[in-house]
Each structure stands twice: as C-alpha cells, then as structure tokens.
Design a protein around this nucleic acid. Structure first.
Length: 280
DNA sequence: CATTACCTGCAA
DNA sequence: TTGCAGGTAATG
C-alpha cells in the first residue's frame, strides 16, 4: 500500500508520540515470518528496554532509530498499517506486532496480507539496507542529470525502471502512473530514447507529484492510514490512477487501463502517445 | 524479461 | 466465483 508519501506521512505523524519513549515489551508477535532479521529469540530479547531516539524514512521503509545504534525498520508492503494506539485499544486479528511504550501507548503493526516486514538492525545492517536502495527522489542528489544517467544507462521500459527501487527508491504504482501522466510520457517508452525535454518534465513531475501527495497526507484507496489512523486526501487529486474511463484532466479523453510490468497502469492515450514507445 | 509466490479481503 | 489490490523476492 504505502509508497514514499504515505510512509513519510506516517513517520511525521508518529514522531511526537513515540520519540523519546522506551519500548517496554513486545506485547504481541503472532506472525514471526514478518521478522526479517535477526532471528526471533534475538529480536524478542533485544527490543524491550530500547528507547526510540528518532523517527524517519528511507524509500518505503519506516525507520525507528533506537539507542545503542540499533534501528527498527518496518516495511508495509501492500496492506500494512502502522499506528500508535491508546493503552486500552485491543489489537484485532490482523495486528501481528504490538510494542508497548513506557507512556502506556502502543505501536500497532497491522497487516491483513502478511507481506509486511520488520528488521532490527545495527549500524552495519542499516548501512546495508541503505546501500541496497537507490536515490531518494526528493533528495538533493536527485537531479535531472542523475535521472538522465539512470535512464540512458538502461534500455528498458520506463515504468518498470521507475518501480525498481535500486535506481530511484520510493515510487510505487500510483506515483509512477501520476508522474508519467504529468510528464506526458508513455509507460512503455524505452528509457534510453527519452529526450532532454522529457527528462526535465519527468524529473519535475516526480517531485511535484510526491510533494503534493505529502501535502495531502498520502493517498487512501482502502488500507492506508497515517500514524493516528486518519486517511489521506491525495486520492482526490489523482489525474489518472484508479480513473479508468474518467476524462483526462488535460484533454478529456477517457483514461485507459492497461497492464505494464504486471501492474494495472493508467494512462491518457492522447497525452501519452503509444507511437512514442519505439522512441524513434 | 516474464511469471510465480507470498496472503487476505473485497467488489464485480 | 473470479479477479484484483498501494510490493518485492524468488524462479524460469
């Protein structure tokens, strides 16, 4: 579910309620496969007593910086939801991890589809995770020049390239479709045939789309909520995503849904011309 | 590169 | 009942 703007919103909304708090106990962990690392006994033994010194985000990972150099990284994949709950709120059957804080509030990780993951990492583990991920699209290193370099050194379809987290990290299905619509580029276009003008449009489209989504608190289609349980409002501002048969906001042509990279993909067939995919 | 697996819930 | 879902890792 959550892409970069949703994880960013969750990180910000959690901060004031959990920063400076100490995790007293793991109150519930009933789906152990969600723990990537370390092994379960070590995870259970290390978490209690750790204090949360920082909250942040890297790509689609929510990061809780703990004392002694530890970090707890959480990835919500498709249906995960992370929130802070009052001490008297009972976790439902889909809430697989509950961390109790010394404030008596609790961090809930709820995930019906069980794709979500948690990693407890030391400094070296954090560095490994960081190194496995590409550029932050809202970071200062993400320039039109770096984008051009990424596109020109591959010859693959644009959409799968933009979804690949090892190049640019944080975009998912929603924001790739929205960015390509704003840039007026077809998702099947080959990356190394993009013009300088198109690169400039794509670069600014990506940043605009992500910044706008953060402003509106993320996009809620079904599962997403922020750290307080509130849905986002950015879905009200989609141009193409989830908008099959609705008029293109730019030219009124009905939006078309196709499948690219095995993902539902939404385009305006007029603004994002198919004949550009050959890239002549 | 494409397909499958991982899971469950919900809408068509 | 079938197909689809905001993600990624593991397979051909």
């Amino acid at each position: 579910m959550p892409e970069l703007p949703e994880v960013e919103t969750i990180a910000r909304s959690l901060a004031t309620r959990i920063r400076g708090r100490t995790i007293t106990t793991i109150e519930k962990l009933d789906w152990e496969r969600m723990v990537d690392m370390p092994d379960i006994p070590t995870f259970r033994a290390t978490i209690p007593g750790r204090s949360i010194v920082d909250t942040g985000r890297r790509a689609k990972w929510l990061l809780l910086g703990l004392d002694s150099g530890w970090s707890l990284a959480m990835h919500m994949r498709m249906s995960g939801r992370i929130s802070v709950q009052a001490h008297d709120t009972e976790p439902d059957k889909h809430t697989h991890l509950v961390l109790e804080l010394d404030s008596h509030e609790r961090i809930f990780f709820r995930d019906p589809r069980k794709f979500g993951r948690v990693r407890l990492m030391d400094a070296a583990g954090s560095a490994t995770l960081d190194a496995s991920l590409g550029l932050e699209p809202l970071g200062e290193n993400f320039t039109p020049e770096r984008l051009a370099q990424i596109l020109m050194t591959h010859r693959t379809r644009l959409k799968p390239l933009l979804l690949n987290q090892t190049h640019i990290a944080g975009l998912g299905n929603i924001y790739v479709d929205e960015s390509l619509w704003h840039a007026q580029i077809h998702p099947l276009r080959l990356s190394n045939t993009i013009t300088q003008e198109e690169i400039a449009r794509l670069h600014s489209a990506i940043q605009m789309v992500l910044n706008q989504a953060i402003e509106y608190g993320g996009s809620t289609l079904r599962d997403y909520r922020d750290g307080h349980g509130k849905p986002g409002r950015n879905q009200e501002h989609f141009s193409v995503y989830n908008s099959k048969d609705k008029p293109c906001p730019r030219c009124q042509t009905p939006i078309v849904r196709l499948v690219v990279a095995q993902r539902g993909t939404h385009i305006c067939p007029t603004c994002q011309r198919i004949d550009n995919i050959v890239g002549l």
